[in-house]
Simulated assay, not measured.
Amino acid sequence: MTPSAILESALYVTDLDAAETFYREVLGLEVIAKAEGRHIFFRCGVGVLLLFNAEATRQAPAPDAKLPVPPHGAVGQGHLCFAATAEEIVRWKAHLEALKIAVEADFEWPSSGKSSGGGRSIYFRDPSGNSLEFAEPRIWGM
């Protein structure tokens, strides 16, 4: 058996309010759940982006917890890539630059046969320093 898709992805942020503003206003994602001081979840296409305050998720759940999610967390900068067409990447780059959000890298991936059909990527950072990317799915042969 193999998984069919990634349902959710998580990043850890240092300021949930700044993260909510960035992901909602800059990236246009819809908030679907929020727990003050702990997490904020966004709809992203058919998946979900989970943003956690790592300090709040490191503790084990109470013995009588309704949802006994095991402790988790990370320290440092994470990475997440959003799928985008070549035309969308042009628009995303202009949007980010208009908001004075630095695009750290903008390049074409080489075509390497089955695993990559080439494609463009742009990289930028969220307010917590996580590395975000918009890329054409063909960079992974999709």
Score class of each variant (00 low, 15 high):
Gly78Pro: 08
Glu8Met: 12
Ala35Leu: 01
Lys66Ala: 09
Gly113Trp: 11
Phe42Arg: 03
Glu55Met: 01
Ser111Asn: 15
Glu25Arg: 15
Gly78Gln: 04
Ser111Phe: 13
Gly28Lys: 08
Val46Thr: 11
Glu133Ile: 07
Pro3Leu: 10
Val90Glu: 00
Ile32Met: 13
Leu27Cys: 10
Met1Pro: 09
Ala56Cys: 08
Phe134Ile: 11
Pro63Gln: 13
Ala65Gly: 00
Glu36Trp: 09
His39Leu: 14
Thr2Ala: 00
Leu49Pro: 04
Gly37Ser: 00
Gly118Gln: 02
Val75Pro: 07
Gly118His: 06
Ile6Glu: 03
Leu99Ile: 05
Phe22Val: 11
Lys114Gly: 12
Leu50His: 08
Val75Ala: 15
Phe41Gln: 07
Gly37Gln: 04
Ile122Met: 12
Val26Asp: 08
Leu29Gly: 01
Ile139Tyr: 02
Leu99Phe: 04
Phe107Pro: 13
Pro71Tyr: 04
Ala56Ser: 08
Ala62Val: 08
Lys66His: 04
Met1Gly: 10
Gly73Gln: 09
Gln59Pro: 03
Arg24Ser: 07
Ala60Asp: 04
Arg38Pro: 13
Ile89Gln: 04
Asp64Thr: 06
Ile101Val: 07
Phe52Asn: 00
Asn53Pro: 12
Phe107Ile: 11
Glu136Asn: 03
Arg38Leu: 15
Val46Phe: 01
Asp64Phe: 00
Pro63Trp: 08
Ser111Glu: 15
Ala135His: 10
Leu27Tyr: 09
Val46Asp: 12
Lys100Ile: 10
Phe42His: 01
Arg138Met: 15
Ala65Arg: 00
Val26Glu: 11
Ile6Met: 11
Ala86Thr: 12
Trp92Lys: 08
Glu30Leu: 11
Gly73Trp: 02
Leu51His: 07
Cys81Ser: 15
Arg24Gln: 06
Gly78Cys: 03
Ser121Leu: 06
Lys100Asn: 15
Lys100Glu: 14
Cys44Asn: 06
Ile101Lys: 04
